[in-house]
Amino acid sequence: MSDAAATAARAAAQLDRLSRWHPAEYVFWALAAASLLVFPSRYLLISDIALTGLFALSLDLVLGYAGILTLGHGAFFGLGAYVAGIAATHGLRDPLLGMALACAAAALLGAATSLLVLRGSDLTRLMVTLGVAAVLLEVANRLPALTGGADGLQGMDVGPVLGLLPFDLAGRTAAVYSLATLFAVFLIVRRIVHSPFGWSLRAVRANPLRAASIGIAVDARLSVAYTIGAAIAGIAGALLAQTTQFVSLDGLAFHRSADVLLVLVIGGVGWLYGGLIGAVLFKLMQDQLATITPQYWEFWIGLVLVALVLIGRERLAAWPRALWRRVAGRQPA
């Protein structure tokens, strides 16, 4: 074999490794599926974890890969929840149809607002994302005929998934539905981040000047990433609406956006599994703490955030990855 061919073969192998499934990934998803069998009494929690993980995954695409600092990601989640909820109160019973509508609405809003987000610095982005979410909350508040206003949206009628699985009180369908959706969307996102498009996002985040000078249309890339992130957040919102059969203004509140940031950083930013692991930890913690001091739950979130930063995000987020390495036997990409 010639030198050039040998180098090319090594290069191909190295690039192959980037997107290959690690054994730990199989373990992760096997555990997720097994949780349905092992904890039949916690279906609702499993569903909640899955949709939170999906929400955090969408933020990872926006923040972790594209590097867009946002405080208003909850807007897309809340919009998705309302669209799916309103669809279900207006006779559109099919959950997948409701989810598609929610996804489309969130994508539209994401595409429209991405034009504002592209402008300026981190600071402008914080302001715009916060502003968009605040406007949406205000709109939902002012249209009680459509959204139920402060009382929340009631009277949703969600049909069976695929016409086969009706939602049950124990939440078994909800858990299966949420987990399956999470897995399907995860596969798509995984594909995206390993594509040249995904790599161009990393390049833009690392150095927009250089990315542009190798021909990458920086603004267009960020805009597309933001829109995809918004669409996925909309799906997560639809899951919340359909599995709990209720939507309230809470879905659009600021703490949604802040919580999902925390979820993502607990597990680590920019490696796909951060949001999922973060969701597990966050929801378990919430489950425990909320039973002790339900109304002051936000205090503990605040404490965790402060501690997380002071101790060092990298150091803390290193441990899920370290555990991962131990299971996988090598470093994840």
């Binding site: 923040l63 600092l69 405080l71 981190d122 600071l123 914080l126 703490h255 802040a258 940031l261 925390l262 950083v265 930013v269 109304q295 002051y296 936000e298 205090f299 979130i301 605040g302 404490l303 965790v304 955030l305 402060v306 501690a307 997380l308 930063v309 002071l310 995000r313």
Partner: peptide, 29 residues
């Protein structure tokens, strides 16, 4: 506290100060 986060990325500063807000809100409440 703040002296430790001047040199940090904006994301860290955002997380840190939101954390303080949440704590302040809960404490006053």
């Amino acid at each position: 506290l703040y002296a430790h986060v001047y040199a940090r990325p904006h994301l860290d500063q955002v997380l840190f100060s939101i954390g303080l807000v949440f704590m302040a809100v809960a404490l006053v409440d």
